[in-house]
Amino acid sequence: MHRTGTFILPNPWDAGTARLLAAHGFAALATTSAGLAFSRGRAARAQPFPFTVTARADNFFHGRPDLHDTVRRLQAFAEAGADVLYAPALPSTEAVRAVCSSLDKPVNVLAAGPLLERSVTELGALGVRRISLGSALPRAALTAVLDAAAELAGPGTFGFARSALGYAESNALLSGS
């Protein structure tokens, strides 16, 4: 390619960006040491703005219900400099307590499964410092649309609209007015 003309050599920083760029037809890719360092949070603390590095152990998301391995991974992330440690899909409050008590950094959990039965106060008492909602808000919005569609297609009524935000209020919220 160097002998046949000028070409673009994009620089992916991880496997995902490499796949995306390759899928767009680029014949060659090269790594970027800075991009890789940025994605790993290295030399990054020197930036002129604050940020938080969150590291996640997705064992329970991927069918590997090994709490010991999850804690081991989170401890390694803490040693590598992560600010917050995240283990989504923990199966119980006992698992949450075990993860939190095994780490010396703030722990994030996902509000899902059995944790939906707990309040912010209860999760905080277990040692949790941050709670993510994941896809809960967009799923709640989709549920409202499906419920409205069922009402429209079924009895043909408009009761769902009674609790909807008004047009002017919606506009004000979204326009920043």
Rank of each mutant, 00 (worst) to 15 (best):
D69R: 13
A168I: 14
R97W: 11
E94V: 12
F60I: 07
L36E: 02
A161N: 04
T70I: 05
P10G: 00
S170C: 06
G124K: 05
G159L: 15
Y167S: 07
A125P: 00
C100I: 03
A28F: 12
A57L: 01
M1L: 05
T17A: 10
P155C: 13
A112P: 00
A34M: 04
F38P: 03
A22R: 15
H24L: 11
T54R: 03
L152E: 10
G154R: 15
A82Y: 11
L67S: 08
A112W: 11
K105G: 02
D83E: 10
A150D: 09
F160V: 09
T93P: 00
V84I: 14
N11A: 02
P50F: 05
V145P: 02
L146Q: 14
D69I: 04
L90D: 00
V99D: 00
G113F: 12
Q47W: 10
R162I: 07
G159P: 04
F38W: 13
H2P: 14
A136G: 07
A168G: 05
A44D: 09
A153P: 05
D69T: 06
A30Y: 07
A144L: 09
A80D: 09
S170A: 13
Q75G: 00
S92A: 13
P88G: 06
T143E: 13
S175E: 12
A168D: 09
R130G: 02
A111M: 07
A161F: 10
Q47N: 08
R42L: 12
C100A: 15
R19H: 14
T6A: 11
G5C: 09
T143P: 13
L133N: 10
L152P: 08
L29F: 08
T143Q: 10
L29S: 14
A80Q: 05
A30S: 05
A153L: 13
E122S: 14
A95M: 03
L123D: 00
T157G: 09
M1H: 07
V107I: 13
T32D: 15
V145A: 06
T4S: 15
V99T: 02
F7H: 15
F51E: 06
F51G: 06
H24K: 13
D147C: 13
A76W: 06
H62Y: 11
R130Y: 06
V109H: 06
A89W: 03
R56L: 02
L103W: 07
K105T: 01
P114S: 10
R97C: 12
H62E: 05
F61I: 12
A164W: 15
R139Q: 14
T70Q: 02
R72G: 01
F61R: 08
H24Y: 14
A80R: 08
S119L: 13
G166W: 09
P50S: 11
V107F: 04
A82G: 06
I131V: 15
T32G: 14
S92F: 14
G25W: 00
R162P: 07
G81N: 03
L21M: 05
V120M: 11
R129E: 02
L137D: 06
M1T: 03
A78E: 15
A89K: 01
P10K: 04
L67F: 04
L173V: 12
G63C: 04
A27I: 10
